[in-house]
Design a protein around this nucleic acid. Structure first.
Lengths: 246, 246
DNA sequence: TAATTATTTTGATTTAAGTCAAATTTACGC
DNA sequence: GCGTAAATTTGACTTAAATCAAAATAATTA
């Protein structure tokens, strides 16, 4: 039994679950690492998991063991209030790491659910720390990833921003992240509902819908349900952070 | 000249700037470390700095080299918008680490200013990573600190919370942090203005003032300018996260 | 200590976003 | 492909917070 498990693991790490041949290599954990380091990472990835649409990857309150890198698909994280309200705390796309918040108390502080059929690479955290010790650039890059998670959505939560500005900031944030992954920064499909966007930005779904309509009426974007086109991204960039937009 | 500097450093690390004799030991970086590890940390702290009221510790946009642990005093971090508006992004008290957001791009992403005469311990980041490699518990504890920074103010920024709830969440957060440092969780002095609280919580200063007045009128707290008393902390805890409070 | 400045409180009014409701569009299971 | 459920849009109305304004209090410094 034990033997079989090991063999399976060995096979996995030698075939499918290799950073060295992964298309995300340049924007995921291996970013900037040399060959030796990437091979070490290959051995670190214990498993890949398929998470289907609406399935959970982690649950608020449950013990933490592994980080998960999104390999394909899209996730949201959220917390549940006592009264049942759901608060969306983030969205994650390929190359981004889930679970960083859980290191602090060895317990997940939010739940993560797939917004479409997805795949993740599992990184057992204890092993990551161990391997990191022998490969300083890996550890350093991990620190950068954690640090980035701290800054991540600061731009979206600025208190003084109005509904329209917030939505623009959100769209520009998505645009930049899609662009880095080789997708169009001007045309993309949202994977989340208006309600989820609203929850994330601290607004109601009707307000999100109206803000979309207003941006479209002004010719700045085109909206067809979840399909978004940024028609004038420069103008949008000027709007964001400029409270003159109502 | 070079020699003099070295001597000064040596003297410092052997006398005043020692984690091993620091009263913050149990809630700062050395938390849970053994004797050997704490001595390694002693050598890591390159200097202590006195930062007077209204003086800056770090500037948004400038290069990052060192983390700073608050040893005494109180700081706020903030970013400046293009239009000059200031957005407060956090408050830091003794034992808390400033600069974690800057690791990501080797550049500070916010400015930090002392809200009272303060003192910090400087941790050159490259050295921290190097020492961490040889002392796994130190590195692990550092990861916990970074992870905590990710979760830090999640509870305060929940979109669906009303002004009163936000202020209560803020007061309870401060209360808990004061308590861990050996101060009263029920009675404390705010170091920041109503405007700074408002900026942090995404509200205007007048709204903060009114929320204080309302909480006092309801007998839940006593406010005398910056002096706060939590009269019924259990009731306050029930309010926070319960949108029934207006 | 007086004078000046900064901070806080409170009131009156406006406004952006929330709420409630209904119609429309889209997605999904059979 | 049809019927049901879910998501989105839009309108009418309400409300919480912003804004404008002025007075009161606290802090700073000459």
């Amino acid at each position: 039994m034990m033997f079989a498990t090991l063999v399976t693991k060995k096979l996995r790490s030698n075939t499918s679950a290799r950073c060295s041949t992964c298309s995300l290599r340049e924007l995921c954990l291996p970013l900037g690492l040399d060959e030796k380091a990437v091979i070490a990472l290959d051995h670190l990835i214990s498993q890949r998991h398929k998470i289907r649409h609406d399935e959970h990857l982690q649950h608020d309150g449950l013990p933490f063991h592994s980080l998960h890198v999104v390999r394909a698909g899209f996730f949201k994280t959220y917390i549940l209030h006592e009264d049942g309200r759901e608060q969306v705390t983030g969205f994650y796309m390929p190359g981004e790491v889930l679970g960083l918040d859980a290191i602090s108390a060895d317990t997940h502080t939010c739940s993560a659910v797939a917004l479409e059929d997805s795949e993740v690479c599992e990184l057992p955290f204890t092993q990551l720390e161990r391997v990191g010790r022998t490969i300083p650039p890996l550890m350093h890059h991990f620190h950068k990833i954690m640090s980035f998670e701290i800054v991540r959505d600061r731009g979206m939560l600025l208190g003084s921003m109005k509904a329209g500005e917030r939505l623009v900031a959100f769209l520009l944030n998505l645009s930049r992240r899609f662009a880095r992954r080789g997708y169009s920064p001007l045309e993309f499909n949202l994977r989340m509902t208006r309600e989820e966007i609203g929850s994330y930005l601290g607004l109601k779904l009707e307000t999100i819908s109206r803000a979309f309509s207003k941006l479209q009426a002004d010719g700045l974007i085109s909206v067809n349900n979840r399909k978004i086109c940024l028609n004038d991204i420069e103008h949008l960039r000027r709007l964001y952070g400029n409270s003159s937009y109502k």
